[in-house]
Every structure is written in structure tokens, then in C-alpha cells.
Write a protein that binds this DNA or RNA. Structure first.
Length: 135
DNA sequence: CTTCTGACA
DNA sequence: TGTCAGCA
């Protein structure tokens, strides 16, 4: 399918679709006229990319993770669900472990930010008598 | 009309 | 990301 069809199927703009390709996330074939030729699998891939991006992962990381999704769509396409799950297959060992570590890292970061937030809150609760130096 | 690449806001 | 240009 051409880019316009994929756009309608995924809701992702052509601009973004081309950008994903530029980032190595998509590798559509080319028609004789130079038009990109996407496969049905690319529809699912784009959805996965959106999810991974929403998770805050950089395209470089998504690139690797994408290979860990070995289409497990055994269902009829009646459902519009993304139908994606992490498939532990070819050389994807340790992926979930790394992802869990990332979550732990984020959790720690949140704690630090909360500490800063509380410190700032108490600071603002103090009587505001810090005046400007007489000029 | 649809897509392509490159570039600018 | 949107959008415009200039082609094919």
C-alpha cells in the first residue's frame, strides 16, 4: 500500500511516516515510480512505534525493540486492537529486564523530583520577607 | 491527483 | 510536525 493508505489506516501523517523511515523504524519497499510500498505488517509496526514513542523511548531504542515483535497476530483482523505484545524471540533476551531497569530508573527520578518539590513547597511556606536590596 | 525530497517556521 | 516548492 502507498503512504496515503497507511496514513488513513494508522492515523499517522505522511510526514511522520517518512520521518520514521528516516529514523530506520520503517523500511518500505519502493514501487517502480519511486513511491513507498508498505506491507500490511507495517500497519501494526506503526502502532507499535506509536506505543513505544508514547513510553518515552528514543527511536534508537525502539529500533531494537521492534525486532522483538514477531507478529503473533493469529486472530482475524476483526478487532481493531493493536494486537501487539512483546514476543520473546530471536536475540531479544534481556529486553524485558532492561525495560524493567528503565522503569526503576524512572521511579528513582520521580522520587528525587518529589523531594525537590517538597523542599520548594516548604520554602514557599516560610514567611516571605526576602526583600529587594534598597536601590 | 498522489508522492518525492529538501528546507524552513 | 506542518507546509511550501518544483518534479515526475
Amino acid at each position: 500500500m502507498r503512504i496515503g493508505v497507511l496514513e488513513d489506516a494508522t492515523g499517522v501523517s505522511r510526514r511522520l511516516l517518512r520521518y520514521y523511515e528516516e529514523q530506520g523504524l520503517l523500511r518500505p519497499a519502493r514501487l517502480a515510480n519511486g513511491y513507498r510500498d508498505y506491507s500490511e505488517a507495517d500497519v501494526a509496526t506503526v502502532r507499535r512505534i506509536r506505543r513505544l514513542l508514547a513510553a518515552g523511548l528514543p527511536t534508537a531504542v525502539i529500533n531494537r525493540i521492534l525486532d522483538c515483535f514477531h507478529d503473533g497476530d493469529g486472530g482475524t483482523d476483526t478487532g481493531n486492537d493493536d494486537g501487539d505484545g512483546l514476543m520473546t524471540s530471536s536475540g531479544c533476551a534481556g529486553l524485558t529486564t532492561r525495560l524493567r531497569r528503565e522503569r526503576a530508573r524512572i521511579a528513582e527520578e520521580i522520587e528525587r523530583l518529589q523531594a525537590s518539590d517538597q523542599a520548594l513547597e516548604s520554602l514557599l511556606a516560610m514567611p516571605a520577607r526576602i526583600s529587594r536590596a534598597p536601590g
